[in-house]
Write a protein that binds this DNA or RNA. Structure first.
Length: 561
RNA sequence: GCGCCUGUAGCUCAGCUGGAUAGAGCAUCUGCCUUCUAAGCAGGUUGUCGCACGUUCGAGUCGUGCCAGGCGCGCCA
């Protein structure tokens, strides 16, 4: 637990005790102590910490909030809390002022924990999986995938910082109908390239990249598939195309800073009989019935609106069947918690899949599905319908080429997954210099520059400031910076708990702003040795925290800009 | 028609289990570089938090009903 959390917890506990004591001595009458908060007030002038405890007790105690606050203060023990003053303010807040050195202890913590600073252990080493992107290997990665990649990767990093044993996984949809369509599309392109006049399938994939793919196949193997039997021809083309597409997806994601632990093939679930086994288990448990030659899953038994076909009347399992098997497999592999990042267009599927997990005996809450609203592409002021089938989309590769990895990742991670993002590539290009990511990176580069200059000027930068030196950090700018730094473990905890990495993007922006303010008001490289040592400690801590968070967000922390 | 998401400053968006005077960036206006990076800082301007009721000490936050936009409601994935 960090220093900041320890102090807060101590005061929190003392407040609880004060309330209990007041009940014992008859000053307050209530049944249950409400869940109150102890947090920093909005305005610095109000104090260092504030609680709403008194206001929450009004109903039960039938007293005015300020009167209750009075009673609590009378019963509050303040030794070892750093509290130097308390006052009742506004509608009934209790504000505390703390000894001005209460925060400086965070500096030695950051300097000793280095890249571990900010870690919390709410995960307790539990195995957790984040599955994200899982784009169909029938085309290139687009903007929606970019958002999913930025979100999923940062979430995974955040959760490992919060003490989970995290695995990143990509589910390869290399089976089913779409692969059949993919095969037909490839076949048509292949034959067309070789001069045959064949129609392009209605439901085919129109992307230009497919033509490139068959061109490469022709370069290598010529026209040898033309005379092959249809099935063999399609299979050969698909096998090569899939390999190429997957390789492309993998390297594109790696360039985007995303590395997976596991690439999981849907096909293997069919081949191993796992899909069939899973279906049988559902059948044994009474969740399957037959209608019009197909097998249906009784989702309605588990609160869903309609039942769902799991095995078609032609005997072929649906995507849903494979998905159930896949998620059953995840739990078999020992993951205690499984998080999926899906596009909002799949939300109808959430209830059914959770229902299926429940039917199989798993806790449906162990499967968390984060729905991310779609990215809408704007061109010439118009919304463009993006789809792999139409071939109309901006690729992740183009995005990186145009605006850069850091700006692109920050752009997405700054936003709540629930918000619909409009993306205008031309606008993004023209505004890429205004991207807030540079504001943060600039802060990091500035910090590095100070440390460089310190060395050039012959100052020792590795000495750790002692308690007396740290006590010199008492300006508002320094204290604000210290508070923000001290806040990090709590910020990690709540972001992880809520699975919302975008909070950290906000945090790091705030931290950069506080540093820039400090930078413009006070100098680090000064004659006064004690103050200089203390400030060097402060800026080394700031730099460490910036780097830690940027690392989670997958954004680089440059030494110079 | 039903379900889910969204509606906050001119634009893009934050706002934790309800809390004090609703915030940030961009844009715009005014100052600040002979001192550690001006990709910066300080300050000004900008709001019926979609609308209306309700719940309570207190609502951007919770409830209900409307309005607007997005997505979904296949033996597609």
């Amino acid at each position: 637990m960090s220093l900041y959390e320890r102090i807060k917890k101590k005061i929190y506990n003392n407040l609880e005790e004060a309330a209990y004591r007041a009940r014992e001595n008859g000053k307050l009458a209530y049944d249950e102590l409400p869940a109150f908060v102890l947090e920093e007030p909005r305005e610095r002038q109000l104090g260092d910490l504030a609680t709403n405890l008194a206001m929450l007790l009004t109903k039960q105690c039938k007293k005015a909030p300020r009167e209750i606050a009075e009673i609590i203060l009378e019963n509050l023990e303040i030794t070892d809390t750093w509290i130097t003053a308390s006052e009742i303010a506004g509608p009934g807040f209790i504000n505390f002022r703390l000894d001005s050195n209460w925060l400086t202890g965070v500096i030695p913590e950051v300097l000793s924990q280095e890249d571990k600073y900010g870690s919390v252990n709410i995960g307790q080493g539990q195995k957790l999986q984040v599955e994200f992107v899982s784009a169909n290997p029938t085309g290139l990665l687009h903007m929606g995938n970019a958002r999913g990649a930025a979100l999923g990767d940062s979430l995974a990093a955040l959760l490992s910082m919060a003490g989970y044993d995290v695995s990143r996984e990509f589910y390869i949809n290399d089976a089913g109908n779409q692969i059949h369509n993919f095969a037909l599309s490839l076949e048509a392109r292949y034959l067309q390239q070789l001069g045959h006049d064949v129609p392009f399938p209605e439901a085919g994939y129109h992307g230009e990249d497919l033509i490139e793919t068959v061109k490469r196949i022709i370069e290598q193997d010529g026209d040898k598939y033309v005379t092959l039997e249809e099935d063999f021809r399609r299979e050969s083309l698909v096998r090569q195309a899939l390999e190429e597409k997957l390789h492309d997806i993998k390297t594109t994601l790696e360039d985007f800073g995303v590395f997976y632990d596991v690439w999981f093939s849907e096909q293997t679930l069919h081949e191993s009989g796992y899909v069939r086994d899973t279906t049988n288990e559902l059948q044994d448990k009474g969740y399957i019935y037959e209608n019009e030659g197909a097998l249906w899953f009784k989702s309605t038994l588990l609160g869903d609106e309609k039942d769902e076909v799991i095995i078609r009347s032609n005997g072929v399992p649906t995507y849903f069947a494979a998905d159930i098997a896949y998620h059953r497999n995840k739990f078999h592999r020992g993951f205690r918690k499984v998080i999926n990042i899906w596009g909002a267009d799949h939300h109808g599927h959430v209830g059914r899949l959770k229902g299926a997990m429940q039917a199989l005996g798993y806790n449906p809450d162990s499967l968390q599905i984060i729905l991310m609203q779609l990215v809408r592409l704007i061109q010439d002021g118009e919304v463009v319908k993006m789809s792999k089938r139409s071939g109309q989309y901006i690729t992740l590769r183009e995005l990186m080429d145009e605006v850069g990895k850091d700006a692109a990742r920050f752009y997405f991670i700054l936003r709540d997954p629930d918000s619909t993002v409009e993306f205008d590539l031309d606008l993004a290009k023209s505004q890429s210099a205004d991207n807030p990511v540079y504001y943060v990176q600039y802060a990091h580069a500035r910090l590095c520059s100070i440390l460089r200059q310190a060395k050039e000027q012959g100052y020792e930068t590795d000495i750790e400031p002692d308690r007396n030196q740290l006590a010199l950090l008492n300006s508002n700018e320094e204290k604000d910076l210290l508070k923000k730094i001290a806040d990090l473990p709590g910020e990690i905890a709540i972001s992880a708990k809520m699975a919302e990495p975008h909070r950290l993007a906000r945090y790091v922006l705030d931290l950069a702003a506080l540093f820039h303010t400090f930078y413009n008001s006070q100098r680090v490289l000064i004659e006064d040795t004690d103050l200089r040592v203390a400030r060097l400690g402060l800026i080394k801590s700031t730099k460490q925290v910036l780097a830690n968070i940027l690392g989670i967000l997958g954004v680089s922390a440059p030494e110079r800009m």
